[in-house]
Design a protein around this nucleic acid. Structure first.
Lengths: 258, 258
DNA sequence: GACCTTTATGTGGTCGGACCATAAGGTGGC
DNA sequence: GCCACCTTATGGTCCGACCACATAAAGGTC
């Protein structure tokens, strides 16, 4: 710390920001974002062709492509070949997949202690359950019941169980009606898909009773949602999530994080 | 709807997946993510040079660059020129800025109804306040008090107020200690920075009393945190956020969403 | 020998060009 | 009228070249 000024820096004392050299592709991104936030570009609108935009902005086509790639990876743009009305580069709106990828990678990078992830998940799913108890439609509840039934299938192995479990929680989140909360819930649950499956596999013979416990939790949650009992739904969700991390998780996550 | 099978489609009845042509840069991304999630690449590790990796994977340098760009834009990679230990392309860990950009754009694209964003913000900041009330350090509280004092400065215009307000909420989130929740809080608050500033500006003469109200809210929150009163802190935070959207927001967000 | 200057090397940053694959629309022959 | 073919416009990919930058190594100066 503070070692920056220890040598004979002619700028000693004046802490100048390193100016952050702007790469051209970032400038291109700025122009595109500018058009979007000012409303000149709306969802579905088409951008100029790469070659044309490159000439318009006075940069190379490669710079435009890199900018487009970055925005496409964030779900802002959608690129397609051809000459039809759906071809070319258009403004898309798929935040879910982008959020998903983003959170999944960062959780994988172990930037977040597992306890923080669990706390965040509890927070999100409590909120979803609260809303779901108030506004879940019969169709939502029916979907949940089908997922529960599928989990009861004797042919349901651990991998399939993991998928169905994820789907069940996603169904609750989507029944809650808040798109943003649901997306965050999905992203976090998806980010734990692989670690959870590993944990399931390592349980060995202890799997059967654990699975029964999880399914009972699910039934309790489902019943609370059907009854519109928001408080009970929230409590069951929290106990469900925390319970597994306490009982079944064991040392599967031996990361020494807090 | 259902008109897909109305014409004489030879594949009628067989719903084939559209195959989803994989772009080369996506394959490169997969390889990189693979290395990350399997732990072969950790934060700070260095990737091969673009030219080398291109040859290793049998693709062009451009494809590698596009993949790197996408990952850089998501905060997964960090690219720097030179030959030193900090140069080259390394695995970074800056989810905040990436989440930030992502949510800001998508809120701008109006993909999320404003009510959903507010609900999500309330949820996140209640959680942060709950933890902050329990574990905020004297340094955390001191920082908040300084921000409050800066907001009381008569020279503090609306833009500066907006910044300080954002910083105050970020300070609470970080005092809560949950990195993931804090990052999501920051991202959402930042995503509303510009719209909020617009709202402030459009208030006209009504600004002064509104600002006073907001500052009173802040003081109440701060006092609850100092007292370690988690329940009160949560309530004040929720009233603070919802209050402004109800009273001060007015028709600034005339999007007809919900 | 210690210190500064110069050069070499390796990195990402940028550019231009070329060609391919795809998907529509137009054109002609039958 | 209908089908095959060509034209056109787009993104997808690759190659090669050069630039800007930052460190590391070599050399020269005192």
């Amino acid at each position: 710390m503070a070692g920056i000024e220890s040598d004979d820096d002619p700028n000693a004392g004046g802490s100048w920001r390193p100016v952050a050299r702007a790469r051209t592709y970032e400038l291109v991104i700025e122009r595109v974002e500018e058009q979007i936030v000012t409303g000149q570009l709306k969802v579905g609108d088409r951008l100029p062709a790469e070659r044309d935009l490159a000439q318009m902005l006075g940069v190379s086509r490669g710079a435009v492509r890199e900018a487009f790639r970055a925005l496409e990876a964030q779900g802002v743009l959608r690129m397609a070949v051809g000459t039809g009305p759906d071809a070319g580069t258009t403004v898309a709106a798929t935040p879910s997949s982008a959020l998903n990828r983003l959170l999944r990678l960062h959780v994988a990078l172990a930037n977040f202690p597992i306890q923080h992830v669990v706390d965040a998940r509890v927070m999100l799913e409590r909120e979803s359950a609260r809303h779901a108890a108030e506004k879940a439609t019969p169709a939502d509840l029916e979907e949940m019941r089908e997922l529960l039934a599928a989990m009861d299938d004797p042919d349901c192995d651990r991998e399939r169980f993991n998928e169905l479990d994820a789907d069940f929680h996603v169904a609750i989140a989507e029944a809650g009606g808040n798109r943003l909360v649901a997306d965050m819930t999905i992203a976090i649950r998806e980010s734990m898909r692989r670690p959870l499956l590993n944990a399931f596999q390592e349980l060995g013979d202890a799997w059967a009773p654990i699975a029964e416990g999880l399914k009972n939790d699910h039934r309790s949650i489902c019943e609370a949602l059907e009854a519109g009992d928001s408080a009970a739904a929230q409590e069951h969700v929290e106990r469900h999530i925390r319970g597994f991390y306490r009982d079944g998780w064991g040392g599967c996550f031996s990361t020494d994080q807090s």
